[in-house]
């Protein structure tokens, strides 16, 4: 045992949790269990991101699933210059952007977004009102262009800095700012009734 001779660690803690970087190296060398651990670790955040971007939990699951499969295929070339989470965030975003682009254009009034999962526990009247506002927002978001929607969701819901959005989407920071502005402009208009 290491503790028996020379300078060996005294700590006898449980096996250290494997960091992403380590799991990524293993998965890149063909360890599917390491990849499975990465999937479990990152799926919740990515599912939430995709649901925000697409407005539909079902489509979000498909997008995230495809993103993970494509990540498995690309892992041997992944050099680890970005963190795995950042890399996945980018793959999912671009996947969702493609999904949005392939949707037939809808007007805000036609779109009926899928209801979000759990109900909140507040007083019924206020809850109902707030709920209606959120529903109106979801509907209004459907009226944004795919590019506006992606930029706005990343900025306002995911809190991503402008420069990172620019990198993810592959456009200039100015273009991102322009899209976020136009999305805000459109949405404030749509939500004017709730002021």
């Amino acid at each position: 045992m290491p503790g028996d001779r020379g300078r060996a660690p005294e700590e006898t803690d449980a096996p250290l949790p494997h960091e992403d970087a380590l799991l990524v190296v293993r998965a890149a060398e063909g360890d599917d269990e390491a990849f499975e651990a990465l999937v479990h670790r990152h799926a919740p955040v990515l599912l939430r991101l995709a649901t925000r971007l697409l407005g539909s939990p079902t489509e979000a699951e498909d997008a995230v699933q495809e993103a993970f499969v494509s990540a498995w295929r690309k892992l041997p070339e992944f050099r680890g210059d970005a963190r795995f989470g950042t890399w996945m965030h980018r793959i999912v975003t671009n996947r969702c952007l493609n999904v949005l682009r392939s949707r037939p254009p809808v007007t805000a009034l036609d779109s009926v977004p899928e209801p979000q999962a759990p109900e909140h526990q507040v007083s019924p009247a206020r809850a109902a009102e707030a709920h209606a506002a959120v529903r109106d927002l979801s509907r209004a978001i459907e009226g944004l262009s795919p590019e506006q929607r992606v930029c706005w969701v990343l900025r306002e819901l995911d809190g991503v800095p402008y420069e990172s959005i620019a990198e993810t989407v592959g456009i200039s920071q100015e273009a991102v700012r322009g899209r976020v502005f136009r999305a805000r402009r459109y949405l404030t208009e749509a939500m004017a009734g709730w002021r």
Binding site: V45, Q65, D136
Partner: peptide, 27 residues
Amino acid sequence: ALRTLEGVVARARADEPQERQWDTAAL
């Protein structure tokens, strides 16, 4: 106008399931 929008956005985020509530086993 912007604050109103932000208020509803905050509400929408609060309505989202918590991270740990996403069922990722099937996925």
